[in-house]
Design a protein around this nucleic acid. Structure first.
Lengths: 107, 107
DNA sequence: CTAATATGTAACCATATGGTTACATATAAT
DNA sequence: ATTATATGTAACCATATGGTTACATATTAG
């Protein structure tokens, strides 16, 4: 079975599958910030935010850097490129995809 | 809380989060086919395939068309565009994202 | 008509997921 | 030194997820 799905890509898509995590990513697009700021912004508990950040970090979509008692969260650009490429590859060949159905419908 | 996540977009990302479903999508890129062909190709039970197809159909990534006792499965292109746009928007502004951190690091 | 084929549904199961509260730890402030 | 703040961990819970087997239904073939 041909698969285009590496473990890394799977982590990225899993991470992107939760709307709160996507919101966190967009929140971070405004700029890097402290975990405390993410916690303040989202209407979920602190530990819930920590979990989401851990998922995002594991997928390499963000990094966490401890500075004193604060932790800076920043976006990391490499990982999402894989997902981007996957989707682009998916849509690039789109219009070539229906030959079989067309053949069928001509019968 | 600003959200860029419509229900539709969420369905798409949820659908894409499973590696088997992504494999099904790539399988269908070869061309539209019968459900039976998808069932034959993937090493999971028939009902498992049916479930995956239902998720993909609900996310509007595929359509199912019943022809006699067969069902033709084909990719549908509109839905994934939303996910593509989301990711593109994410990466478009990437390099502008780190001003806050930069400010911090200059201190 | 009867048998075979294609597909989907029902019921069930183990594990994953996303959330919570309570607590631990480390650093900064007073 | 003591208190307050920032963050993460532990334990737990309800629900979602992806899988299975058994069965139902619809259509085609013999």
């Amino acid at each position: 079975m041909v698969t285009y799905n590496s473990n890394e890509l799977n982590e990225v898509f899993k991470a992107l599958s939760d709307p709160t995590r996507r919101d966190i990513i967009f929140f971070l697009k405004r700029g890097s910030c402290y975990v405390s700021q993410v916690r303040a912004y989202f209407p979920i508990s602190g530990p819930a935010v920590t979990k989401h950040l851990s998922v995002l970090e594991h997928a390499k979509l963000i990094t966490r850097t401890k500075i004193g008692r604060n932790v800076i969260v920043r976006l990391e650009e490499n990982a999402i490129e894989d997902a981007k490429k996957w989707i682009e590859e998916y849509s690039t060949f789109w219009n070539k995809s229906f030959d079989n159905l067309d053949d069928y419908l001509k019968k």
